[in-house]
Every structure is written in structure tokens, then in C-alpha cells.
Amino acid sequence: MKKNKKRKLIGIYLFLIIFLILALLPYFWLVLTSFKTRVDAFAIPPKVFFKATLSNYREAFLDKGFLMNLKNSIIIMLATVGIGLGLGLPSAYAFSRFKTGKDSLLLNYLLGTRFTPVVVLALPLYLLMSKVHLLDSFVGIVIAHIAFNLPFVIWMMKGFFDAIPKEIDEAARVDGYSWFKVFLRIDVPLAKSGLAATAVFCAINSWNEFLMALILTGRHTATMPVGIPGLLTPQGTIWGQIAAVGTIITIPVLIFAVLVQKHMIAGMTMGAVK
């Protein structure tokens, strides 16, 4: 009986290990490729051991100007997170604390926005942005990213505010705090781990987003994902540099994701699973 159980456990670990190998192999290969020369990158049989070079990173970020794309990505990400949280927190708080008869309607409206395909919003946003001259501006792309992230912030933070006992608010109210003060001084600090998770989610959404950025940004505001197709030239795809940029795009995301792992699921189901 016990032996049987042990064997089963080994089987489970084996399954998990195989699963992980499959899940990580393509990414591992990408990272490896980023350190290869062009001839090594295409070598058959594939080279696992090779003379590593940083030339792909140097060429992509210094010569091809991906440093600027990196900077643009950071600016757009920070602005999206900052404004998204600034607008979304009060609303999330209101859903948690000041319930009204219209809540379900409003929440439904938020979900609707969240699940709208990017292409559905990209078309009118492009036409409208061009009318108000916001193409290739940080304002334009940040607006587009907020449109997707705001519903997300509200849904996610609503869950975190719900988890804070209402008695705390009432105690503060008795002490003469205004509601706004209760919200800002008491409940927001209490929800800070959730806040961090929400911020990370927004950051990742904005950081990885491609289609909107492709259409709304231009030479001065292009993000890293938008710069990548430029490496697919008729004179050959520059895989090494694509891999280098891909690696750089992914690493911060992975670090953040591990940091807020605990709240990952809540975020990705919009609070439906905690």
C-alpha cells in the first residue's frame, strides 16, 4: 500500500517535470539564441555549447535604438499603472463599500469593456486619435492602455477591498474621519499587497501589448514589441536580436510575476477565484 503510494508520487513528479520541460524549452531556447552569432543560431545540429556573444544585445539596443523603445515602454507602462490605479481605486472602493442598485449594471459594463477584442477598439481609437492629433504621442497610447486596464483594476481591487473588514472603517468614521480619508489613509494601506499585485498586472498588460501599440505609436513612441517586426527584414530575419529583445522584454515580467504569485489567480480571473 505504502509502496504503491510512493510509486504514484514519483509518477506525479515525473509528469510535472516533463510538463515543465515542455513549457520551458521554447523559452530556454530563445534565451540561448540571444547569445549566439547568426551562423550559430541557424546551425544544424543545434548548438547547446557555443561561444557566447553579447553582440545581439549591443546591436539591438545600441545600434538599432531599442534602448529608446525600452524607455518608451517604461514611460507608457508607468503612466498606465499610475493613472489606472488613480482612477480605478476609488471606484473599486465604492463597489466594495457604497453598494447601490446600479452596481451590477456598472460591473457588467466594466466586464464588457474588458472582454472587447483589441481590434474592436483599435479601429475607432485610431480614427479618433488621428482627428485630435494624438497619434505617435504618449497620451494616445496611454489612453488606449488605460481603456483596457481600468476595468481590470476595478474588478481586482474590489476583491481586495472586500477582504478588509468593514468594522475598521466604522471605527475610523466614529473617530471623525471623512470617507475619503478612511479610503486613503486606512483601506488603501491595508490593501497594499493587493495593490502591488494589481499594479504588476497592469504593468504586464501594458508592457506586453502589441496591436494597439502597433497602430497608435510611431517613430517617437514605439514600444519594444512594436520594434520587433522591424527585425524581420527582406534581407533575413535577425533572430539573435529578436531573441535578445524578447529576453529583455520577458525578464522583468517574470520577476514581478513571481513576486506577486500569490495574487496571480485572483488577478487573471478578475476576482472570480481567490
Binding site: Y126, S130, L135, L214, I215, G230, L232, T233, P234
Partner: peptide, 15 residues
């Protein structure tokens, strides 16, 4: 990139 040049131009003209 090739696929985006015409796209960007036409969109710029249209708007």
C-alpha cells in the same frame, strides 16, 4: 517593416 509601411501611410492620408 514592409507590411506596415503602406498601412501607416494610408492611415496617415486617410486621417
Amino acid at each position: 517593416p514592409y507590411d506596415n509601411v503602406i498601412q501607416k501611410e494610408t492611415l496617415a492620408f486617410e486621417s
